[in-house]
Nucleic acid binder design. Sequence first.
DNA 1: CGCCGAGTTGAACTGAATCAAGAAACGTGG
DNA 2: CCACGTTTCTTGATTCAGTTCAACTCGGCG
Lengths: 192, 192
Amino acid sequence: MFEFLHKKINETIDITDEQFEYAKTLFVPKQLGKKRLLLERGNTCIYTTFVGKGLLRSFTIDEKGNENILQFAMEGWWVGDLYSFLTDEASEYTIEALEDSQLLLITKPSWDLLLEKVPAFERYFRVLIQNNLIATQRRLMNTMTISAEERYIKLLQDFPDISQRVPQHMIASYIGVTRETLSRLRSQMASG
Amino acid sequence: MFEFLHKKINETIDITDEQFEYAKTLFVPKQLGKKRLLLERGNTCIYTTFVGKGLLRSFTIDEKGNENILQFAMEGWWVGDLYSFLTDEASEYTIEALEDSQLLLITKPSWDLLLEKVPAFERYFRVLIQNNLIATQRRLMNTMTISAEERYIKLLQDFPDISQRVPQHMIASYIGVTRETLSRLRSQMASG
DNA sequence: CGCCGAGTTGAACTGAATCAAGAAACGTGG
DNA sequence: CCACGTTTCTTGATTCAGTTCAACTCGGCG
């Protein structure tokens, strides 16, 4: 799993083997079974986590009990509640494994240490967050400008395997509609 | 204006006077009159820009000619299309001054140089983007979970002076409703 | 078996968009 | 400083995408 992390990091920055060996000491490997929680809302998000294998989702729950999915995190991605992680405040988000997953966790103190000792990580995280920002801005504009059907089509284009790995009602929640609406969209799309 | 930039930078990182003097050489000051464009869609966003004074908006225009506002940028903020800036591809966004504005522009090559020569800026931009990501994620979740009225109230809480500086129809577009809907919401709120 | 979560389908409802028209505010030139 | 056109805001009537509520199906799994 560490090799995979190393590979992903090398896509953005160059670090020496010693530097990576040092980084390794700061991560805690964790195996998380399907339906288990990595973070429960109300708690502080004390880890930022790298997904080595598996699939997770982060979501909020509103007054009516509806789940609203912020993110799906697959192999090679990172998950966490950035705000809670940085400020130590209670998180609004719950993070749950949708498949048995293998994770690498890093705490805020270790993360600070990593940035201090290996400044190249500053760039790595900057690029990571940058790409996330670009994607989130796009998604925001999409929810404001295009129809549910178009958002669904775009999601399938961007993540072709998502419908094999994630139940429909979660996809509905990700694109911002009810399960009933997505079900109807799909049957229309199949016939038309 | 450079003093203001220096002050903002110092809120996040410590840089020496020489380092700041060097940074200054990389920025191009620009005065932009109300209604003038900093970027027009179809062009590459060749600058990332710091707003010293004034107010700008970045927005897209959809098929029906509706404007969809991604961001208002006030004093001390940064604007630009990150994706276009990083990749050199044509931007979907138009950026327009809503007030006479004073700006500091930096090109991609200069920006790269700045990050290389003064690595502390890597952290500065990381934090900047991080905060932007947190805010954008919140806005995304808000558009998916709460009503137009609640979004409007939140916006006024977060930016109390915005209704004095920005025409209503742009606020409507920012929160993702038509001008007619916002007008109706306001009259309901005033009476109720 | 029986139960439970996931998905489907139908009918009624609703928040917001659209279309249309008028009123108010603004700014620019004479 | 007024007159005129343009932009901004409001109000009303109608339409529509998506929600809500409810009932039913299907497949897995104790």
